[in-house]
Each structure stands twice: as C-alpha cells, then as structure tokens.
Design a protein around this nucleic acid. Sequence first.
DNA 1: CGGCCATCCTGCACGC
DNA 2: TGCGTGCAGGATGGCC
Length: 270
Amino acid sequence: MPELPEVETVVRGLQSTIVGETIVDLEIPWEKALQPESAYDSLIDKTIRRVSRRAKFIIIELNIGALVVHLRMTGKLTPVFPEKHITVILHFRSGNALYFQDMRKFGRMVYTDDPAELVEHLGPEPLSDHFTPQRFIKMLQSKQRIIKPLLLDQSFLAGLGNIYVDEALFQAGIHPQSIASAIPGKNSKLLHKAIQNILSASIKAQGTTILNFSHGDNQSGTYQAALQVYGRKAQSCLVCETAIEKIKLGQRGTHFVQIVKRNSKQIITY
DNA sequence: CGGCCATCCTGCACGC
DNA sequence: TGCGTGCAGGATGGCC
C-alpha cells in the first residue's frame, strides 16, 4: 500500500511524464473515483503545470485549480495501459494518457479550486526541516495516546502508514503499545531519527512493493528487502533471533519483538 | 478528546 | 475443483 515513499516515487515519475500535457477527454469506468460530479467539465482543456506531494496526497496542479489524488490501498497512476481495474482515464492532446488503476476502488481523484484546503488538516511532513527532534518530543509529550495509532493519525504526523510505523518503532526500540507522553525524550529522538532514516532509505529504493499482482510492468521498489519486522510474523528477529509477534492494535496488524538482546537494546513499553 | 466500530472494495489464502 | 469465510487496510464519520 502506498505510503509516503511510494507516493514520492509516483510523483517523481509523473513530473517527467505528464507536466505540460493538456486534458482533452476523460473516461470514468468507476464513477465514484472522480469527484465532484462536475469534475469532468472542469478538467476538459486544462493543462498540467506541476506535480507535487503533501503526505500521501498527489497534487496535480492545472492552469486553473488542481486534481488531488489519494491512492489509498491499491491505487496506481500510470501512463501504461493496465488491463484491469481502471477507474479513470485522462486523455491528453499529445495522444498520451494517464490511467488511474485501483483494484479495491478506494482511491479517489478530487478536482478543486483550492488544493490547500484539502490538505490543511495534515500534521507535519516527516522529512521537512520544520519537523525537528525537539518539536517531535513536544508533540509526543502532549499526547496520552498509544504510540502506534498516534503515528498512523495523519493529523498528528502525515505520511506514515502501517509498514513504516512498525519498522520505525522497532528500529527505535519502542513497543507499539507505549503511551506517547511516557516515552523519554532520548527515545523520542531515536524514533524521530528512525522515521527519517527509514523514509529516506525507502525513497532511495523507490519504495516498498509488497503485493505484486501477477502481470503488470509496474515500477516496483526494492525496500521490502530492508524490512525488519513487517510481514515477518513468527520469523526470527534479525537482531536477536526472538520470534516476531503480530498483534492487532487499533484494527491494524502490528509486528514487533519483545526483546532485542544484542547491542543490549530492548523493546520497552513506557 | 480518545477509543471503537463500520464503511468502502476485491483478491487471495484457507479449510472442508 | 470449488465453495464459503475471513482477512488485508487508509481515511472518514458516527457513536459513546
């Protein structure tokens, strides 16, 4: 499922393929995927000026307004014709096209005059200069919530999903059920560093590809090879050989190990 | 405010 | 082989 690094990878691809294209027609095989209803008319004859990202949202700026896209679980934006699960097609004057493909149909495209409004509820970007360790420590200190669901809350911190949250907590040696405000500053700082390191490394690897759906020359990332705990239930921890546990936390599969013995590092519940 | 649940969807793994 | 069931999950919204 696309999280920040995967969306960043998609955006970089789009920047070199669709900027400058003018939309001349649309096909909408799955009506719900494009909103509002008036979007069809709004998009005709619009030219793509720039493509950017805010957390997991893709912002396709047009000469008037913008198309804000969220891929959710299984959405993909590709210039290559996908055989199945197409929800929206943008046809360009050049003859090229952009296909919105989404097996589970959760993804959405929204045309808006004011894209900023659609992303104003989001917390800080984890890789921005504004997201300092000091700020993160303060953010955690003010929350009595369980750390894992808190990190998944996009209004708290924007861009992390289930995979990278499990990985970051493991790397920082913090139990996913810890109460945020009880985590010592020193460990919050480690978590901040883990979040940034993991996201940066994953962007470099062009993201994580967990589910590859048979055929499809999808541009797949390689970060899955670097995952330490996600999807490794009952396998042994790569640091200490303890079996990785999987529990349900806030309705999400959650992977962790109780104790990491080597380096005398321990997964601690605060 | 936080916790919990349902909703949206489909494909796949599983048991029989 | 094929059927039924459960599970996966990002975001939102309703309820307590």
